[in-house]
């Protein structure tokens, strides 16, 4: 994880349309290693669509994504995960009927290799790998502070704990870039503050963070740089202090009245 400050992700003219709806228009942005990068915009601005293009769920209609110096092959989510892009979802998507522990263990899938034969024979290599998966999952449970819920089904966790579990599961894939889709949605003040501390901790441990968020206070306090999307186009990209006072941003959020 060397080279803090060098470019980790470069999106060049990403476009995506659904039938006649142009959800993304030539969006270009660069995310540097070690930063917390915020992506904001009004509802329907295309933030989640950009996320889905980045993580391989959608195939962009145009443009190019460069990750860690190499082209990112579109439309294969598991390949994005393999390359080191992990994500959470706006409406939490956990494996509800698996325990918290198992959820994180699934996250290790992409970094482990046991196949059918190994699983059936359970040889020394498989046992060692399985033990390592458990150890890492336990570490991550502690990391996001839900170790006491390890054996509870994910669906029975509280809302805040589910958010944390989803982040832990994403971290289990050893990402270089962690993409969080509205992690603070539905959280109260205390939970949001705890989340802020967690995200900062993740960045300090060397993972670059891409954050989509509606909570402007959280974004402005946490992000190193922020890009603003409106109607599928990027209208601004800068440090929070500048973005906050950009007239185009104010217009996008408050409507045309200000101009």
């Amino acid at each position: 994880m060397s080279g803090v400050g060098e470019i980790l992700l470069e999106a060049k003219n990403i476009g995506k349309h659904f039938g006649g709806v142009r959800a993304l228009r030539d969006v270009s942005l660069t995310i540097r290693r070690g930063e917390i990068y915020g992506l904001i915009g009004p509802n329907g601005a295309g933030k989640t669509t950009f996320f889905n293009c980045l993580t391989g769920l959608y195939t962009p209609n145009g443009g190019e994504l460069m990750f860690d110096g190499k082209k990112l092959q579109a439309s294969a989510p598991h390949k994005a995960a393999q390359r080191g892009i992990a994500r959470t979802f706006q409406n939490i998507r956990l494996f509800g009927n698996m325990t918290a522990m198992e959820n994180i263990m699934v996250g290790r899938h992409v970094r482990t290799r046991t196949g059918v034969i190994g699983a059936v024979l359970r040889d020394a290599r498989t046992r060692a790998e399985e033990a390592a998966i458990r150890r890492r999952a336990e570490e991550l449970l502690h990391y996001v502070d839900i170790a006491d819920r390890a054996d509870d089904l994910a669906r029975n966790l509280s809302y805040g704990d589910q958010r944390r579990l989803e982040i832990a599961r994403a971290l289990a894939t050893d990402p270089q870039l962690l993409a969080l889709d509205e992690p603070a949605a539905g959280m109260n003040g205390t939970e949001t503050e705890e989340l802020r501390v967690l995200i900062e901790g993740i960045r300090n441990d060397g993972v670059t963070v891409l954050l989509i968020e509606h909570d402007v206070k959280l974004v402005m306090g946490l992000c190193d740089r922020v890009a603003v999307l409106d109607y599928g186009a990027k209208i601004c990209e800068d440090v929070p202090a500048v973005v906050q006072h950009d007239p185009r941003v104010i217009e996008a959020y408050l409507g045309g009245a200000v101009a």
């Binding site: 993580t55 391989g56 769920l57 989510p77 598991h78 995960a81 393999q82 992990a86 994500r87 979802f89 998507r93 956990l94 494996f95 509800g96 009927n97 698996m98 198992e102 263990m105 699934v106 996250g107 290790r108 899938h109 992409v110 970094r111 482990t112 046991t114 196949g115 059918v116 190994g118 699983a119 059936v120 359970r122 498989t126 790998e129 399985e130 998966i133 599961r169 994403a170 289990a172 894939t173």
Partner: peptide, 28 residues
Amino acid sequence: RLENSRIGRAWVAIREDEIAAKACGINT
């Protein structure tokens, strides 16, 4: 043996939420 392995967990993950399973790097 399969149930309690990486493969078994991946199967259950797909049953629970296929999109999340993909995002976790499972080649569904």
